[in-house]
Design a protein around this nucleic acid. Structure first.
Lengths: 212, 212, 212, 212
DNA sequence: AATGAATGAGAATTCATTCAT
DNA sequence: TATGAATGAATTCTCATTCAT
């Protein structure tokens, strides 16, 4: 019907910048910042090169939009998890790490993490911004969980700061692996088994021995 | 003496390609492949851009030389360690991981790992080559140690394949972190404490309970 | 009242093309043809870029409208002056030059003269058109005055053609100066004094008369 | 001979930037800054576009080199003239103005003057630099001559500052005319006659002396 | 072996112009 | 009539690569 057309148009128009950011994330993550041609992003969205400039001032601005637009929802979800699950730190920690995998590490958002690692020295201010607003925030979330577990006597006493890195590292690595070597080999590792093993190992190392 | 000069020159001349690879590693690791200008590499070595082409066919060839030239010595060292230390798998595993940190993760060689992760999709054949000749080889080394430990009854029975990834991930992450976010913040984490914690956690999770 | 609105609108609507030409004149004169963005003109008028194309076929057409629309009234005024003031050639010449300053040289119309000088080789046909219809017409006007003065014995016998250029040059220069260097320096010259001096010089000459 | 070759090369190599500035002057003067394509300049010199960037950082830098490289010799010549000719101010003034025509107004250097007038508002800092270092310097030169003449009682007492502009304006106008309307009409005015008339007028005045 | 001037293909960016609403 | 989103041709600028010396 005639009345649908404006609606469709409107939705498309409003969706454009978001589509662009999504396409840009894919290409940036695949190629890196410098090797990405704006034309490829434009092609994926189905617009012309010039159209990108209606929404983003420059290639760098688009890159920043990709990075900055990425994580807030996932972080918010994690913080909600923390509030809801304080009675069982072990389960909370498991859910947090698995949740990260499902919401970030195993999605296109993972590309942002890869990008920030690869491009950090080319975009120092952006890196600093990211570190403060994404990494630091996620870090505090995990530290809170770990300290909760220690306070409850469920986890062994350790430096929560370092433990946080140690516990998270295998998750991030799995994500980076999936985006690099994982893409080029037929029979890649089974990530769910990998994560299960990591969580198992982590808990073995982390939990107080009940019998002692 | 006059007779020394040609000798010195000769040595320098012979050292040229190696110097170039070293400088290239630094710049590639800092900027990524596409964002690296050959001129910057040439400047660091103190030669002209054209000279690079006397030794390397192209930018890509230089990149490959960087990647391929990097790990052989470190891997050989690791394999020697394995031969020498079969009587104590726990100690062997600790030495292997710490050794990787000292010989790779905490040196400029770490840049190669970062590079391969970032550029894998831009260089599929190189990535495949790297995966087979570096990763796979290192992987087999660790798997051997883990299986040794399991066979001896020192380590719990687990999938050695996955365990290998889990055990190595925190090491690699530390290295990537050092090269990215670590470079931009004043008070970075203490990597030695981090590694000690990781090893401690790993052994807690890994070792058979003696009392059981 | 509601009935007023359409009226107002209508008037505005009719005025649109003229407003556009005025704004275009300002921007073209400030930036030159190539460096002028149609968007800036549209912004000054308060319409969208597309609206310009309802009234002008192209950027070039707008430029031509600017040039062609500018001078007719001023020239007509000059020609009227000639008809009315034939009895006093000296006064007529003074009025003509001052009149040009007040109606053209010191107004935004001056921008057109600057434009035509700057852009002549980019728009040969327009230049030719301008030369024939504006310059030539003004030239004939001044030649008429000068020849009148010579015929009356008030002016020395000279080539009226060349004299016309000589007499007009300082006026045009003042106008160009005002639009270029005059705009960038705090304490610019006093144009009225300048013109007075020019007229004085023109009428009386530089050198002391030896016979006086 | 073989020994000539390096010499020829050397000369060519050293001459390159100067050739580029010359070609750039021509094209900039013909088209204006924005409408000039670097490719056209490169073509005229017989080099590739990229070669321009070996010598000039940007289009703007090349433009600045054109403007700044132009006038020093001519100004120096004028200042030498002043030193040599103080005993006859009238002749000195004539020589100065004719000299400007022969060295600047009637040469490709004239293009710079046209450029500065046309582009002043696009390059405010360059305009200011030009005003101070070229215009002001030339201005002082003429003011010195005029004041010398007044001090000697050869010239009537006038504001030397304004007089300077008045006396110079017809010269500059001739130059601008030659570069614009003069180029597009078959039978252009005779510039030598024009200059002679201007000098004559300047020296003797327009009006008949009533006492003669 | 070494140089560095020159190249030219390729990418980002701009903007006059079009067109569906 | 008016809009403004979209286009794509054109232009500046970069840099890997070549080659004469």
């Amino acid at each position: 019907m005639a009345t649908d057309k404006p609606g469709v148009r409107q939705r498309r128009k409003d969706a454009r910048p978001a589509e662009m950011v999504e396409a840009a994330l894919d290409v940036f993550a695949e190629r890196g910042f410098a090797a990405t041609r704006l034309e490829e992003i434009a092609d994926r969205v189905g617009v012309s090169k010039g159209t990108l400039y209606l929404y983003f001032e420059s290639k760098e601005a688009l890159f920043k939009a990709v990075v900055e637009g990425g994580f807030v929802p996932a972080l918010a979800e994690g913080e909600a998890l923390l509030e809801a699950g304080k009675e069982d730190p072990e389960r909370l920690l498991r859910e947090l790490l698995r949740g990260w995998w499902d919401l970030v590490g195993n999605t296109r958002l993972a590309g942002i993490a890869k990008l920030m690692i690869a491009e950090s020295s080319n975009f120092p201010e952006l890196t600093e911004h990211y570190r403060q607003n994404v990494i630091e925030r996620g870090h505090r979330l995990m530290v809170a969980v770990l300290e909760l577990g220690m306070a409850r006597g469920v986890f062994r006493q350790q430096s929560a700061e370092l433990l946080c890195h140690v516990a998270f590292a295998p998750m991030l690595m799995a994500s980076l692996w999936r985006q690099s070597f994982g893409m080029c080999c037929k029979e890649d590792m089974n990530y769910d088994d990998y994560i299960a093993l990591h969580l198992d190992m982590l808990m073995h190392g982390l939990l107080q021995e009940k019998t002692q």
